[in-house]
């Protein structure tokens, strides 16, 4: 097995972070998970800036992106990623609380690869996260530009 690449979780709600991490753990995926709390921090992570200057040069296998966040929300971050030559090839899965998000259509227009509404039932949530994790972190082959 090749080295397990990081899953980047962009989520501001700490309880959601905790539950998502638990769900990823329950899915038996052993990929490392990096957690950032909003779009600004996510950009710093992806561009090796701020406190992520020293981190290992590696793109995440997938970005799990919440929409409603302080400072820079998911849509804005998505727009920036989409406009970046390399980052635009990064798989991004929108993870949101609601089907009523006004940005569903916009997310796809901005290059999101998937849109997942977090189920209320935790067992269903674990199933969703497992399916996502397995597909994007294990099955899916990333763009060669991201493998540098």
């Amino acid at each position: 097995m090749t080295d397990l690449r990081t899953i980047l979780l962009v989520e501001d709600d700490q309880r959601d972070v905790e539950l998502t991490l638990k769900a990823l753990k329950a899915s038996k995926l052993s990929n490392p998970v990096a957690v950032v709390n909003d779009g600004v921090e996510a950009l710093e992570y992806l561009q090796y800036e701020g406190k992520y200057k020293q981190r290992k040069k590696e793109f995440p296998s997938v970005v799990l992106l919440d929409i409603k966040m302080p400072r820079m929300d998911g849509l804005e971050l998505l727009r920036i990623i989409n406009n970046d030559k390399i980052l635009s090839t990064l798989p991004v899965v929108m993870l949101t609380s609601s089907r009523e998000d006004p940005g569903l259509k916009e997310c796809y227009a901005l290059g999101a690869n998937a849109y997942v509404v977090k189920p209320i039932d935790y067992k269903e949530f674990i199933d969703s996260v497992t399916a996502l994790g397995i597909f994007w972190a294990l099955i899916n082959e990333s763009s060669p530009e991201l493998k540098t």
Binding site: R15, D16, L19, S97, S98, R99, E100, P119, Y122
Partner: peptide, 25 residues
């Protein structure tokens, strides 16, 4: 109303997910 629906959908569902999640854990 649209904003309200989004808010209801998003903001009410989130704590419910948390309750369900932690009770399950």
């Amino acid at each position: 109303l649209e904003a309200f629906c989004y808010s209801v959908s998003h903001d009410l569902r989130a704590p419910l997910r948390h309750i369900s999640g932690f009770a399950n854990l």
